[in-house]
């Protein structure tokens, strides 16, 4: 097995495991845990990009995923703060 294949299958595994964990992982009732779990498929996707040598997309994705995290966390904190019951 040569390197790109290892990256690829690691990425695939992370994407699938991570998405399962996000949907039904332990403690995902807490939104912040759920957001942390979404980082796993994000890293998995980054590995898939790396396998295909989509490096510019990878670079953008690394920046974008940080920003998405920030947006989601902002929503979580703010909703919690105003005591919203969803």
């Amino acid at each position: 097995m040569f390197d790109p294949q290892i990256w690829f299958y690691t990425g695939c595994a992370l994407v699938v495991i991570g998405s399962i964990a996000t949907v039904t992982g332990p403690g995902v009732k807490d939104p912040i845990v759920r957001i942390l779990n979404t980082e796993i498929p994000a890293v998995g996707l980054s590995l898939i990009f790396l396998t295909y040598n989509h490096t510019i997309a990878l670079l953008t994705y690394i920046a974008a995923t940080t920003i998405i995290t920030l947006i989601l966390l902002r929503a979580v904190v703010r909703l919690e703060e105003m005591g919203a019951e969803l």
């Binding site: 994407v15 979404t38 998995g44």
Partner: peptide
Amino acid sequence: NDLSALILTDIVGVAMLV
């Protein structure tokens, strides 16, 4: 929960990118 649904759309986005 609507907030959780919003977070989960992120996963759907990952699937699209794959």
